[in-house]
Simulated assay, not measured.
Amino acid sequence: MPDNIQCPDCKRINEVLSRVGDRWSFLVVFSLARYGTLRFNELKRSLGISQRMLSLTLKQLERDGLVHRTYHPSIPPKVEYTLTETGRSFHEPVNALGLWALENLDKIETARRAYDETV
């Protein structure tokens, strides 16, 4: 791209993609889209994520309007997460990328091994 051409929305796009494009956000959205409403510990167990990282990820997704948090004041407290309308619209590209990753895992692993042998 020539130096005199600017992408007026690139900075804003980068801000959104850096937030929703990280692996934990991706996996949380993928899981909520697949299973619907999930409790915190259900997400934690299924993703193999630390409590701190899941908490941070969910807060950021909630801030971005992709996840809705419902607190039930019971003993013990019950917190559930579900995708918002915006989060559900994000599911289509997340699902496509997730399926692409699954379909190409073997090819990628083979390519990595071949590369590592030559380096």
Rank of each mutant, 00 (worst) to 15 (best):
C10H: 11
F90R: 14
H68A: 12
R113Q: 14
R19G: 08
D22Q: 13
G65A: 01
I49A: 03
L32P: 02
P2M: 12
E109D: 10
Q51P: 06
K107R: 10
P76M: 05
I13T: 00
E85I: 11
P93V: 07
R34V: 07
D22C: 11
V119W: 00
L56E: 06
H68L: 12
T37H: 01
R113T: 10
K78Y: 14
E62Q: 01
Q6Y: 12
V119G: 10
E85Y: 12
F90T: 05
E92K: 14
T37A: 03
F90G: 05
A101E: 09
T70L: 10
D3P: 12
G21F: 09
V28D: 09
Q51E: 12
V20S: 15
R69M: 00
N104T: 07
V67P: 01
R88M: 14
L27S: 10
K78C: 15
S18H: 15
M53A: 10
R88C: 07
S55R: 08
F26K: 02
R45D: 00
L47T: 04
Q6A: 11
L105I: 14
N41G: 08
G65Y: 08
D64H: 03
V67G: 00
K11V: 05
N95R: 13
M53N: 14
L32M: 06
I108W: 11
R34L: 03
T57W: 06
G98E: 15
I75L: 10
M53Q: 13
F40W: 02
S25V: 03
Q6P: 10
S31R: 13
D22N: 15
T57C: 08
L61A: 07
V67H: 03
V20E: 07
L97D: 01
E103H: 10
P73I: 04
L54D: 11
P77V: 07
I5P: 11
L99F: 02
G21T: 08
L83T: 01
K107G: 08
C10D: 13
L17V: 13
H72I: 13
P73N: 13
A101S: 14
V28N: 01
L105Y: 09
L102V: 11
N95W: 05
V29E: 00
T70P: 13
L38A: 04
N4S: 04
F40K: 11
F90P: 05
I49C: 05
T70G: 09
S31V: 04
L58E: 02
K59Q: 07
V29C: 02
S50P: 09
K107T: 02
S25D: 00
W100M: 04
A114I: 12
M1H: 09
L43V: 12
F30I: 04
Y35F: 09
